[in-house]
Simulated assay, not measured.
Amino acid sequence: MLDQDMAREQVLEAAEGLFYARGIQAVGMDAVRNASGVSLKRLYQLFPSKEALVLEFLKQRDSRWRRALADHVDEGASPDERILSVFDWLYKWFSEPDYRGCAFINSFGELGAVSADVAEQARHHKKAFRDYLAGLVTAAGRPVELAEHLALLAEGAITTAAISGTPEPAHQARDAARLLMRAPVQNATAGSIRTR
Rank of each mutant, 00 (worst) to 15 (best):
F87C: 03
F87S: 05
D88F: 04
D88Q: 06
L90P: 00
L90T: 01
Y91W: 11
Y91P: 00
K92T: 11
K92W: 05
K92F: 00
F94E: 08
F94K: 09
S95Q: 12
S95M: 09
D98W: 06
R100D: 02
C102L: 02
A103N: 02
A103V: 03
F104S: 03
F104G: 03
F104N: 01
I105A: 10
N106Q: 11
N106S: 13
N106Y: 02
N106V: 04
S107V: 01
F108V: 04
G109V: 13
G109L: 14
E110W: 07
L111A: 06
L111D: 05
A113M: 10
A113N: 05
V114A: 11
V114M: 06
S115G: 07
S115P: 02
A116H: 14
D117G: 02
E120F: 05
Q121N: 03
Q121A: 13
Q121I: 04
R123T: 10
R123M: 14
H124S: 13
H124T: 12
H125M: 01
K126H: 15
K126W: 08
K126N: 10
K126T: 00
K127R: 15
A128S: 06
A128M: 10
F129I: 02
F129L: 15
F129Y: 06
F129H: 05
F129M: 12
F129T: 12
F129G: 01
D131K: 04
D131Q: 13
Y132R: 08
L133R: 03
L133G: 00
L133K: 01
L133H: 00
A134N: 03
A134H: 08
V137I: 07
T138L: 13
T138W: 15
T138Y: 13
T138D: 15
A140Q: 13
R142Q: 14
R142S: 06
R142V: 07
P143C: 11
V144F: 02
E145Y: 15
L146R: 06
E148L: 12
H149G: 11
L150W: 02
A151G: 11
A151Y: 14
A151P: 03
L153G: 08
L153Q: 09
L153A: 12
A154E: 12
E155Y: 04
E155D: 05
